[in-house]
Computed example of a mutant assay.
Amino acid sequence: MHTKRSLNRLWIAWILVIPVLLVRGFTIIYPIFETFRISFYDVRLLRGINEFVGIKNYIDVFQDPKVLTSLKFTVIFVVASMALHIILGVALALILNMKFMAKKFLRTIVLIPWAMPMVVIGMAAKWGFNNDYGLVNNFIRLFVPNFELSWLIHTNTARAAVVAMDIWKDLPFFAILVLAALQFIPEEIYEAARVDGAGAIQAFFKITLPLIMKSILVLSIPFTMWRLASFDIVYAMTSGGPGDDTSLIAYRITTEAFTNLNLGYGSTLAIILFFVMVILSLINIFIVNKKFN
């Protein structure tokens, strides 16, 4: 009797859940399948073209200088941003974990940049990095009179500015999540280390860093995915310029699909990005499981 009642409850649970799973599955699987299918076609709405071309789009991707430039900057952007997120995020988390007055207030206001929309930040940064009246150059001129630099019209400085604004926005959120991991480290461990003569630096590398490393690696998975899929900061701040030097791959996909209306080529880029994200996710998960399980 008890088993029959349990089975009835299980069937009721599945009946209630299946419609949601079907809807959710359709909204995930169908767009991926359709994008994958279109990636083998030359679909250009402005010219009325819809022809099957096989893997031609995939071959063209690696011969397209604009795409190669976007791929190069995407790698630079992701690596530089994540490296600085981890280094500065851990440093900020350690500061926020210290005991001082107004600690709770500081933890609250530090999240303000993260709460702002990236498009707003990008538009503000576009003005902030202006040579004539931008906040950045005005600040530098306090220490270096007659400083002149048009940040967003030179490749290296424009790329640096994009990375800097991405870090400025999401670093506080990363730090708060690392801070949560720090909260779980018992104070007794540090007290024992101090008794044994360990200094602050030794305690960090021997106790703090090993204990929060798993959290850092786990956090790196979604943060890396967000960097790969970044679009709005480039759209609002540089529009991919100068030339195509700050055009991230997600911005290139949007340009091809919705500006040029070249849906086949844009779908090809989207599928490539999708598989890159899947591979990176699997690598991160493998490293976490192998190192910490």
Rank of each mutant, 00 (worst) to 15 (best):
M1S: 12
T3Q: 14
R5Q: 15
L7T: 01
L7A: 10
R9E: 15
A13E: 08
L16R: 05
V17C: 09
V17Q: 05
P19Y: 02
L21R: 06
L21W: 10
L22Y: 04
L22G: 03
L22F: 10
G25K: 01
F26R: 00
F26W: 08
Y30L: 10
P31Q: 07
F33T: 12
E34H: 04
F36L: 14
R37M: 09
S39M: 07
S39A: 10
F40L: 11
Y41L: 01
D42N: 15
V43C: 02
L46K: 10
G48M: 07
F52T: 05
G54D: 11
Y58W: 11
Y58A: 11
D60V: 05
F62W: 14
D64Q: 08
P65M: 03
F73G: 04
F73P: 02
T74L: 05
V79R: 08
A80R: 03
H85E: 12
I86M: 12
I87F: 15
L92Q: 09
L92N: 06
A93P: 06
L94Y: 07
M98S: 14
A102P: 02
A102M: 14
A102S: 14
K103N: 15
K103V: 14
K104H: 15
L106K: 02
R107F: 11
R107W: 12
I109D: 09
I112R: 03
W114S: 10
M116D: 01
M118K: 09
V120P: 00
M123Y: 08
A124Q: 03
W127N: 01
G128R: 00
F129I: 03
N131A: 13
Y133E: 04
Y133N: 09
Y133M: 10
G134C: 03
N137I: 02
N138K: 07
F139A: 07
F143R: 00
V144T: 12
F147Q: 04
S150V: 01
L152R: 03
L152D: 08
I153W: 06
H154Q: 15
T155M: 10
T155L: 08
A158R: 04
R159S: 03
A161P: 01
A161S: 13
V162C: 06
V163E: 05
K169M: 10
A175K: 08
A180Q: 12
A181F: 07
A181Y: 07
F184M: 12
I185R: 01
E187G: 01
E188P: 00
I189P: 00
E191R: 09
E191Q: 12
A192E: 13
A193H: 03
A198H: 00
F204Y: 11
F204H: 08
T208C: 10
L219T: 08
F223L: 05
M225C: 02
W226H: 09
W226G: 06
L228Y: 13
S230M: 14
S230P: 00
D232Q: 01
V234S: 03
A236M: 06
A236V: 01
S239G: 12
S239H: 13
G241M: 10
G241A: 12
P242Y: 05
G243M: 06
D244T: 15
T246N: 07
S247K: 14
L248I: 11
L248C: 03
I249H: 00
A250R: 04
Y251V: 04
T259I: 13
N260D: 09
L261D: 00
L261P: 00
G266K: 05
S267Y: 02
I271F: 05
I272L: 15
F275N: 07
V276N: 04
M277R: 00
V278T: 11
L280T: 07
L282M: 13
L282W: 11
N284K: 02
I285T: 14
